[in-house]
Design a protein around this nucleic acid. Structure first.
Length: 261
DNA sequence: ATGCCTAACCCCGTTAGA
């Protein structure tokens, strides 16, 4: 049985607790990474999973649910991304799980891109800090996977209307440069490597203007795999069903299967 | 058109998301 690993931006764990319970119950992933908890505390979700999380009042927050399966050891390695001690935002958690690093990220959105706003420079610096962390793990030859909301539309085929995203922080040339820098360290975009020509496959649809009904979406929730795990990648699919549930998150889960070593 | 939705916070409008 391959390992099943999922990522999902739930847009408030409190508002989406029942959805997360249903997803865990119906899909039974070994690992679920979630983003945008939007609270300091994690509500009780499931007796079948251990939860590791970093929270924050009102904004951000990430958690990893690990299925209890006879006590395979899990260690919390980091609950902050290095490189800026003053950064208080809850956007990064890294676990050791059976010798694999599980990294769950909520990468900053970065909008508006404006001389008057620090948001885009913060995003770019955050991507540099992530690059530095990935470089360390590559040098140490530690296998890892990064799942989460990257707030990066990698290429034209990852959005409904590329022109509409011109100049946006999710599609900015500097954002693309930092994304490619990660790939150039040897990381593999799990969805794209298995579906190189797939279009109209998205992970986010705005609540507004009937974006979901029109499939006016973007692919911004990703798994990046280190080379050793990329070799074991068996499948990657976007699970559109939860986006259609009542009171849905604006994101839907992405799932990968990794063969057992 | 910088809204059209949704959630948090804390008052009953503002901020943020993408």
């Amino acid at each position: 049985m391959p390992l099943l690993i999922a990522t999902w931006n739930v847009n408030s764990i409190k508002a989406r607790a029942d959805h997360v319970k249903r997803f865990l119950s119906e899909r039974s992933p070994d690992i679920l990474m979630v983003q945008e908890l939007k609270g300091e505390n994690l509500p009780e979700i499931s007796d079948d999973y251990d939860a590791y999380f970093v929270g924050q009042k009102a904004y951000n927050g990430v958690a990893i649910f690990v299925k209890k399966n006879g006590g395979s050891p899990v260690d919390l390695i980091h609950s902050r991304l290095g490189g800026d001690e003053s950064d208080e935002q809850a956007r990064y958690i890294e676990l050791d799980w059976n010798g694999i690093r599980l990294i769950d990220i909520y990468l900053p959105n970065g909008n508006p891109v404006s001389i008057d706003s620090e948001k885009f420079p913060y995003k770019i610096r955050w991507m540099d800090r992530l690059f530095n962390r990935v470089s360390e793990l590559r040098a140490a030859q530690i296998p890892f996977l990064i799942g989460g909301d990257f707030n990066v539309i990698p290429e034209d085929q990852d959005c409904y209307d590329p022109k509409a995203w011109d100049g946006d922080a999710l599609f900015h040339p500097q954002t693309h440069e930092k994304w490619r820098a990660l790939l150039n360290l040897g990381l593999v975009d799990a969805f794209r490597v298995l579906h190189p020509f797939e279009t109209e496959s998205y992970s986010f649809w705005d609540y507004q203007a009937g974006a979901w009904q029109k499939n006016n979406g973007i692919r911004i929730d990703h798994f990046l795999l280190s080379p050793a795990l990329a070799d074991r990648l068996e499948s990657c699919r976007i699970d559109r069903e939860p986006r259609g549930w009542e009171k849905a998150s604006d994101h839907t889960p992405v799932l990968i299967e990794i063969s057992e070593s």
